[in-house]
Design a protein around this nucleic acid. Structure first.
Lengths: 201, 201, 201, 201
DNA sequence: TATGAATGAGCCTTCATTCAT
DNA sequence: AATGAATGAAGGCTCATTCAT
C-alpha cells in the first residue's frame, strides 16, 4: 500500500518548505517559493498536500520531531539523570541559538498558531511529550537520589523549555545580548533551584 | 491646539491596528481591516503612514511602551526591591496570560521581527531598558541587603522575561497546561536562586 | 449619496460582461475577459462587485429588465388586447431569434441557474411579473369582449414564454429549422386556442 | 466476449458522467469528479476518451437516446394516433418535471451547445428525428381521419417539444409555479388547435 | 487497460499602493 | 485631511492533460 515515489516527493517538499519558511517566514512564503526550492511545479505541491495549511502543518510536525529526538539523544548520552537534564537543556539551547531551520520554523509557526488553531495540537503534543518524559524518566531517578521537585513535576520541562524559547527570541532579536557561558550558569542555578532534598521522615 | 487633528487620527489608527492585529495576526491583517476598525478609508492610512510596515512598527512601539510602563508600576507599587521583583514578574505573567491586545501583538510581531529587521531595534530597546532598569534599581538595593546576583546582573531580566515569554506561548497553545499558583511558586524558587549572599571578605 | 462615477463604471462593467457572456458563455468567460472588454483592470471589477457571482447576477437582472420592458412596449404599441398579446409574442420571438446579447445571456444563465440557486430568484421574479401582467391587463379586457381563458390565466404567459424559450433553443442549435412565417401562424393558432367565449348564462 | 472490457468501462464512465453532470452542471464538473464517481482514475478517462469534450458529447448522445426511446414507447403504448400524441407529450412532461439525470444533462448541455458547436449536431439530430417521426407516423393516420395539420407538419414536434422544454425550465426555477393538471389541460387545448378538418373538395 | 505522478495554464480573489478630487 | 476609484502584482487553488510504468 506504499507508493515510495510519492512518499519521496512529499518528503522532498516538506524539506524544501522547511528551508524556505526558515528563511522568509510564514507570512512571506508563497507556494511558488516552495515549489521552486523543491524543484517542482506548484501543481505538484497541491497534488501531495491539499492546501498550504496542510503542508505547513506537516512541516511543523516534522520540525518538532527532529527537535524532540535530538533532545532525547542528548539526554540519553549523559548517564546521570541530573547531568542528563543539564545536557538536554544545553542541547536545546545550542540547537536554538544556532538557528537551524527547524528552530526558526518552530518559532515562526508557534506565533502563527496563536491565530491558526490547526497548528496548535501538534505543539501541545510536543510540550506534553516533554512533560511526560520528565515525569517517567527523571522523577523516579531523583527519588532514588533523595531529591524531589520543588514544584509539580510536569512543570519542570515547561519551565525549562519556556525559558529557552523566550531566551532564543531575545537572541534572535539582538544576538549580542546573551553570553552563552553566563547563560548556562544561570540555567544551572535555575535547574538546581527546582529540586530539593526529601526531608527525612 | 495641543493635539492637532492629524496626531489624533494617527493615534486612532494605531489603536485600531493594535486591536485588529491582536485579533487576526500580522499575516491575516489587511490595511482595509484596520481602516474599517478605525472608521476611516484606506487612503487615510496612507496619508498618516507611508506604508504598512511603518504603521506596524508604530504599533509595536506603542505596545511595548504600555508593557514597560505597567511592569514598572507594579515594580514601584511594592516597596521592597525583592518583593518588587516578584511583583513585577507576577504582573508580567498576569498581563500575558490574560492575552491583552498588547501581549498578542508583541508575541506576533516578535516572530515577524525574525524576518523583518525593521522591527528589531524596538524590541531590542525594550529588552535593554529592562536590563538597565534592573541594573540601576535592583542591584544597589540588593547590595545594601548583602545580596548579589549569581549571574551577570543584566542577565536577570532577560532570564525572567524570557521565561515568561516562553511560558505564555505554551499557555496560548494549551491553556489547561499551567496552573498559575504552581507556576508562581516555581518562578519564586527561580528568582531566589538567582541571588546569593555576598561572602564575607 | 450617489457617486456618479462609480455608478457609471459599474454600468460599464455590466454592459461589457453582457457582451462577453453572450459571446463565450458562462463556463468559458473569465473575469479577465470581462475586464479587458470593459477597458479596466481585474481589480476594478472586484472593487465594484464582490465576486464573479455577484456580477453575473447583476448581468442577469439587467438583461431580464430589458427583456421585460421591450415586451411591454410591444404590448402597449398595439391598441387591442388580443392584438397586443400577439404583438408581444411576436416581439419576444424576434428578440430571441435575433440572438441579441441579452437573449443569449438569459438562455445561458437560465441553464446555470439549475445549479446556482443564487440566480433563480431573479428569473422567478421575471416569470411572475409576466404572469401578473397578463392577469391584470389582459383578463379584464377579454372579459369585456366576452372571452375567457381556457386554463388558469396565470398559466397563459408561462405557456407562451415557455414555448418561445424552447423554440429559441432549437433555433440556436439548428437555425435552418424554423420558418418564422409558419411559426407565427402556429403561435397564433395556439394563442387563440387558449381562449373561448364565455358561455351565455 | 461480446462486450470487451474496454467497452464496458467506457459505458460505465458515460453513466457516471451523466450522474455527475446532472448533479453539478457542466461548468462545475471536473474530470476528477467523474473519475471518482466511476471508481476509476483520471488517467483512465483519458484512455477511453481523448478529451473532456469528447466524453461530454457521448453523454449528451446517450441522454438524448434514452429520451427519444421513452417518448416513442409512450407514443406506441396508446393505440390511437391522437391519443398517442397526447400520451407522448404527457410522458415528456413527466420525464422532465421529475428531473431525471437525463433531463438535467440535456438542459445543461443544450445551453452549452450555444457556445460549443461540437454539441450541436446531436441535438439537431434529435429534433429532426422527432419531426421525421411525426411526419411519417402521425400525418398519414390523421389524413385517414380527415384531419390535417394547421402548420407545416414538421413544426408540430418542434412546437410541442419547445413548449415542454421552456416550461420545464420555468419549473426548475420555481417549482411551485405550475400545476400539472392545469398544464396538461393547456397542452391539450394547444395540441388540438394544431389540427383542423380537411375541407371538403 | 489502467494508475499514480506531475505539469502548466488559467482562475478568482486579495491587497498594498497610487492618485485625482 | 481624507475619500472613492483604480491598479497590478501576487497568491492559493483547480483542472484538463500528459506520461512513465
Amino acid at each position: 500500500m506504499a507508493y515510495p515515489k510519492s512518499e519521496r516527493s512529499a518528503a522532498q517538499i516538506v524539506a524544501a518548505a522547511t528551508r524556505v519558511l526558515a528563511t522568509k517566514g510564514y507570512a512571506r512564503t508563497s507556494l511558488l517559493d516552495i515549489a521552486r526550492e523543491a524543484g517542482m511545479s506548484k501543481g505538484a505541491l497541491h497534488y501531495h498536500f491539499p492546501s498550504k495549511e496542510a503542508l505547513v502543518s506537516k512541516v511543523l510536525e516534522s520540525a518538532l520531531d527532529k527537535f524532540a529526538s535530538r533532545t532525547l539523544e542528548a539526554w540519553a548520552r549523559a548517564g546521570d539523570p541530573m547531568l542528563g537534564l543539564r545536557s538536554a537543556v544545553e542541547e536545546l539551547w545550542v540547537l536554538r541559538r544556532n538557528r537551524t531551520d527547524e528552530v526558526a520554523v518552530v518559532a515562526d509557526l508557534l506565533a502563527q498558531s496563536l491565530y491558526d488553531p490547526a497548528l496548535r495540537p501538534q505543539i501541545a503534543a510536543y510540550y506534553r511529550a516533554g512533560a511526560e518524559q520528565v515525569n517517567t524518566t527523571l522523577v523516579p531517578l531523583l527519588a532514588a537520589l533523595g531529591l524531589r521537585t520543588r514544584v509539580a513535576p510536569q512543570l519542570i520541562p515547561r519551565l525549562l523549555v519556556g525559558l529557552l524559547d523566550g531566551l532564543v527570541m531575545q537572541h534572535f532579536v539582538d544576538d549580542t545580548a546573551i553570553d552563552t557561558e553566563e547563560l548556562l550558569k544561570g540555567i544551572d542555578a535555575i535547574a538546581i533551584a527546582l529540586f530539593e532534598p526529601v526531608p527525612p521522615p
